[in-house]
């Protein structure tokens, strides 16, 4: 309820004031009596109205400050407005985890290089197989020459007649040995050929695997790069949004804090009203008891009850009170 409505609610005051103004000046006693009656009747109403104002203001401001305090508490709790909040920490963790992905690909790359080295060793083995093949061929040629030599020896033994019979037996044995050597050489060559074919197959297969692996690795690297780029973009968007929400939250919290600070006016208003209320009550009692002190004494007593500098200034009639907001004195 505002002051204007309070005044409108008190028609008896206006009526009384009008009656007083119209009263003949010569009727001093009568006018004094009427004034006493007026004040006795009106002062309690003023007192009650002032009490009403104080009470309603106090209730309204208490409710307001309670709601604002709750809003502030919710804002502080929900937004968790400090840097390093849960949202930021989650984004940092995600970024850290994704940053490990290229490292995993590097490990795969290192593994691929190791396999390539292994493949080179196998290829060297293929070269050695070629050497073995040459050796087998040498064995075959030696066997053929030995056989030819043994054949010539048998012919010469036959020409020698009875004296060459023993030598003919030796030549036959040598031919048999050369035949066995030729078979062994051929067997070695077959085995070496088979081994060479296996090595070649292994080399081709390993080469195919390496190429496929290389292609997969390249694809994985591209996928990781795209994913990281996308994540970074989305993270930056999220950070901008979070930062915006945080800034707005801080601004709203600061505004609410200032509202709560501004609501302190109620305490001062309440004290000023209480002082006037008490004085009005005192006036009514004094009139009822026909015990009116002089004006100076009354004002002095009124002034003694002031608690704010604004009251002092209002009492002295100096406008534009300047309160002593937030002044601190240490003892």
């Amino acid at each position: 309820m505002g002051w204007n409505s309070l005044r409108q609610d008190s028609p008896s005051v206006a009526v009384a004031e009008a009656e007083l103004a119209q009263a003949p000046e010569t009727c001093v006693d009568s006018r004094g009596t009427r004034l006493e009656d007026l004040v006795s009747g009106v002062a309690p109403v003023w007192t009650r109205h002032m009490g009403l104002v104080r009470s309603e203001t106090e209730t309204a401001i208490t409710n307001l400050s309670g709601r604002f305090s709750a809003m502030l508490q919710n804002l502080r709790g929900a937004a968790n407005l400090m840097p390093g909040s849960a949202d930021q920490m989650m984004l940092d963790h995600l970024r850290e985890s994704l940053a490990n992905l290229p490292q995993a690909l590097t490990s795969l790359e290192e593994s691929k290089v190791a396999r390539e080295l292994f493949l080179a060793k196998i290829e060297m083995l293929g070269t050695s197989v070629g050497d073995l093949h040459t050796l087998a061929e040498s064995v075959r040629k030696l066997a053929a020459q030995t056989n030819l030599l043994a054949l010539n020896a048998a012919i010469e033994a036959a020409r020698s007649g009875e004296a060459g019979k023993g030598f003919a037996v030796v030549a036959a044995e040598v031919r048999e040995l050369s035949k066995l050597s030729a078979e062994t050489g051929a067997e070695i060559r077959r085995k070496v050929d088979a081994f060479a074919a296996s090595v070649q197959t292994a080399i081709v297969t390993a080469g195919d695997l390496t190429r496929k692996e290389q292609a997969l690795l390249g694809q994985a690297e591209r996928t990781v790069a795209v994913t990281l780029e996308e994540f970074e973009r989305r993270t930056k968007d999220a950070e901008i949004r979070i930062s915006g929400i945080r800034s707005t939250g801080i601004e709203v919290a600061q505004a609410i804090e200032q509202v709560l600070v501004d609501l302190q006016f109620q305490d001062r208003v309440s004290q000023i009203l209480a002082n006037v209320e008490n004085d009005t009550r005192r006036l009514a009692v004094a009139i009822a008891q026909d015990d009116l002190p002089d004006t100076a004494a009354w004002l002095s007593r009124l002034e003694a009850g002031y608690t704010t500098s604004e009251q002092e200034q209002a009492h002295a009639g100096t406008a534009n009170s300047v309160n002593e907001s937030s002044s601190v004195t240490f003892f």
């Binding site: 600070v261 501004d262 006016f265 309160n323 937030s326 601190v328 004195t329 003892f331």
Partner: peptide, 21 residues
């Protein structure tokens, strides 16, 4: 001061001023 009070802050106060005290 005589009662043992250490600081006197006049209302209305600004929170930083009270918090500083």
């Amino acid at each position: 001061k005589a009662a043992g009070v250490r600081a006197w802050v006049v209302k209305p106060f600004q929170p930083p001023v009270l918090l500083d005290a």
